[in-house]
Structure formats: structure tokens, C-alpha cells
Amino acid sequence: MSNQSFERSVVPEILVVDDSKVMRDMISACLRSDPNISVTHASSGLEAIERLSLGRFDVLVLDVNMPDIGGLEVLEFVRAQDKLKDLPILVVTTRSDDVSRERVLAAGATRYLTKPFDPQTILSEVQALLGTVPAGVQTGEA
């Protein structure tokens, strides 16, 4: 598993980074439907970097295109740090973003999701990154 070297918290903590409040709320609502997941928000790439340096998170859900410093810059920055190089990261993009899947993965994303997605998909992706279900398999819990 990709996050083996990562010490698991009691309740997995997910950091959701998006500059849109509605998007953050939507993603948290999806993730919080699993009672074993706790969610923290960051409204910018800079805040995400700060939070990652101060606390510990089990999965990072990252919007690729943000002001100041975008998702790709955050990815590169995170991967350059020893203590964060194995953090599972789910990158969220918009179909029309000029960012290819390859580029996102090359920059260090673990998984990749395109808007619009349904609530189940993002939950399954995050659960897969937590190692609670294998990637790409539906939980059937719907």
C-alpha cells in the first residue's frame, strides 16, 4: 500500500483544499457520510501547506487550480518534503483545465478525479487511499 509508512490516526483526518466554499462543503458532505472520516478545510494552497506543516493528515484532497499557488505547485512542494513524500493525494480537476492527467500524476498525485463526480465516487476514492477499500472498487454501500 502506498501509505504504509504513514502512521494512521485513530480517525483518519482528510484535508480538503479548495478555494470555493461550496466545493469544500460539498466534498466534506460526501466524505462525512463515512462516520470514520474527519475532515479539515483549507481555502488556499498556502493554507494547505501551512496546515500540512503543523498537523498530520491521512489524505489530501486538492483542487488543481487555485489562486496564489495552484494545486500543481502544492503537489511539488509537498512531495519535496521528506515527511510528506508518501502522503496520499487525490487531485480534483475540471475537464476543461489545461492540465493533463499525466502532468498531475507526474507532479505527485496518487489519484485523480474530474468534476463533476458523484458523492459516492469521491468517497470511494478517499476510502481506497486510506486502505479501507481497494482503489476503483465500489463499496456497494449506496
Binding site: D18, V22, M66, P67, T94, S96, P116
Partner: peptide, 25 residues
């Protein structure tokens, strides 16, 4: 201009999420 890019992009992402393709375009 950078603030404009940020706002327009956010609108795009939101619209993609709720599936409003004309706005995304």
C-alpha cells in the same frame, strides 16, 4: 487580473460540479 482569473476559475469549477456545461464553456 489575477483576482479575475481566480474568480472565473472558481465559477468554472463550481459549474462543472453542478453540471452546468454552458457556464463551464
Amino acid at each position: 487580473l489575477r483576482e479575475l482569473m481566480r474568480l472565473v476559475h472558481t465559477v468554472k469549477g463550481l459549474s462543472a460540479m453542478v453540471g452546468v456545461e454552458p457556464i463551464v464553456a
